[in-house]
């Protein structure tokens, strides 16, 4: 059984935010502006988290850290959902059932990474964009919670293709939009359960760390520290 995960190499990341944009386009996230951001109404399944890097200069260097949903192995959001609208599947992906969610926002408050988003209003796209939505990803109605799905629809497409050709899924066939878009290869997506995969090697690098590791949430998004 695969265990999907991601590594993000902060040494390679230039904070260009191509991953943020790719995610927006791939997952039908409605465009938002600075006003929405100030009110906490923006949708960024992949978000840039500001933090202070280790700096030799007089002041610590401000850095950005790309943060998708971390797809915790012990997800605090799944535990608290009263209706089972969020779940962890056998391959470790934490998913959201938009048609079952009642919008109580308990998962959004329970997530220590604030990686979950709520549809405050019916999402709207300006005219040319509205006709260019990704048909593989459902558009969410108002009042439900959404989040990064590790581009789960891409896994389904890759599986369908493999099944049509009567062969197993090949490594690298399933990847996320953010990993594909990253110009420096900082984001690597793959199967953590396969010891020969690139991501497994990176995940066991001595630079590897997890966000808020001491909370015991066991994220499957693993960061690689700068400096090597």
């Amino acid at each position: 059984m695969a265990k999907w995960g991601m590594t993000i190499d902060l040494d390679r990341c230039t904070a260009c935010q191509a991953c943020v944009t790719a995610c927006q386009a791939e997952n039908n996230l409605p465009p938002t502006g600075p006003d929405d951001a100030r009110r906490g109404r923006n949708y960024t399944w992949m978000e840039m988290i500001p933090f202070e890097g280790e700096g030799e200069r007089p002041k610590p260097i401000q850095r950005l850290l790309p943060r998708p949903c971390l797809h915790c192995d012990n997800p605090p959001c799944v535990k608290v959902c009263p209706v089972g609208a969020t779940f962890k599947n056998e391959e470790g992906i934490v998913g959201q059932v938009f048609s079952r969610c009642i919008g109580c926002r308990y998962c959004t408050t329970a997530c220590p990474y604030t990686a979950r988003y709520f549809n405050w209003t019916t999402p709207r796209w300006p005219e040319p964009m509205a006709t260019h939505l990704n048909p593989d990803v459902s558009v969410r109605p108002k009042g439900v919670v959404e989040k990064c799905s590790f581009c789960h629809h891409r896994l389904q497409n890759a599986r369908d293709a493999a099944r049509a050709e009567n062969r197993p899924l090949r490594p690298g066939e399933y990847s996320t939009a953010c990993a594909d878009a990253c110009p420096t290869g900082a984001i690597v997506f793959g199967d953590l359960a396969n010891p020969k995969s690139d991501i497994s090697k990176l995940a066991h690098s001595r630079r590897a760390f997890k966000l808020l590791e001491d909370l015991g949430t066991e994220p499957k998004v693993i960061y690689l520290r700068e400096g090597d």
Partner: peptide
Amino acid sequence: DLGRPDRMLNVIKFGRLQS
């Protein structure tokens, strides 16, 4: 407070006691 009050009966239909 519910985003989808029309679905409030999901709490009975799909209720999970661990929440």
